[in-house]
Computed example of a mutant assay.
Amino acid sequence: MRNFKTIAIALLVAFGTTVATAQTKKVDVAKTKISWVGKKVTGAHEGTVSLKEGNLVFNGKKLTGGTFTVDMNSIQVTDLKADQGKEKLEGHLKADDFFGTEKFPTAKLNFTKVAAKQNGLYTVTADLTLKGITKPITFDITVNGNKATSALKIDRTKYDIKYGSGSFFDSLGDKAINDEFELAVELAF
């Protein structure tokens, strides 16, 4: 019985030490920027979307986790003006053809694995949930001081966003839209 108590105390001390060194840092959504680019045969559109909330988890200075919620209703087109169809495209991106923001107002990203590559650079595997569909994605993230940056590509068709996809529809010609869209993320915490 005494050995059991000794082992239990040792485990509690070890677990307590591990928990004490893990630190969750809240992302400053006002200073964070998420830019997107969607390409098509005849050009591209770009814009922004806002982070609703997010956290990065560190063990000492080493990144070990993260969770994020994106406000999909905040999606904006920045390369068009009102008289060029800005509102029309924003409405279409929020419609069921694309992100279906009425039914799915948020997207979520949860880190499942973080591997250090070199000083401040990590490869992250995460679960991304768009339109209620969760799929794994992998990307690199760089942490420098109280900022983190990443560039990633997401295949929208994996989340049932098939509008204008040449992978699913024939005879689209120059109206085809690339399956992948790009995100550039600048986090401040």
Rank of each mutant, 00 (worst) to 15 (best):
I75L: 09
N55L: 00
E53R: 14
I177S: 09
E46V: 14
V143S: 05
I34M: 10
F58R: 11
F4Y: 11
F58V: 07
F99M: 03
K31H: 09
G132D: 01
G54W: 00
L12G: 05
K62F: 01
A30P: 03
L172A: 09
V124Q: 03
T149V: 11
G66K: 13
N73W: 02
E102Y: 11
G145H: 10
T24K: 00
S35E: 04
A8Y: 09
D155A: 14
I154G: 02
K5A: 15
G65S: 12
E180T: 13
G166W: 04
G38T: 05
F104D: 02
Y122P: 00
A10I: 00
E186G: 11
E90D: 04
N178Q: 14
D79L: 14
D83P: 07
L130R: 04
A8V: 10
G164Q: 07
I137A: 01
T149D: 14
A148Q: 09
M72D: 05
K33R: 13
G120M: 01
L172Q: 08
A148L: 11
V27F: 06
K31N: 15
Y159D: 06
V13D: 04
K117S: 01
T17V: 11
I177Q: 07
L121A: 01
G173L: 12
K39M: 08
I9Q: 04
A95C: 05
A116V: 06
F104Y: 12
F189Q: 06
W36A: 07
A115R: 14
V29D: 15
G43N: 12
K88I: 10
G85N: 06
K113Y: 08
D160L: 01
T42K: 13
G100E: 02
A95M: 06
G60H: 06
A107K: 06
Y122R: 08
T67P: 00
P136S: 06
F104H: 12
E186V: 13
E53H: 11
M72S: 06
A20R: 06
K86Y: 11
Q23F: 04
L11D: 11
A14Y: 07
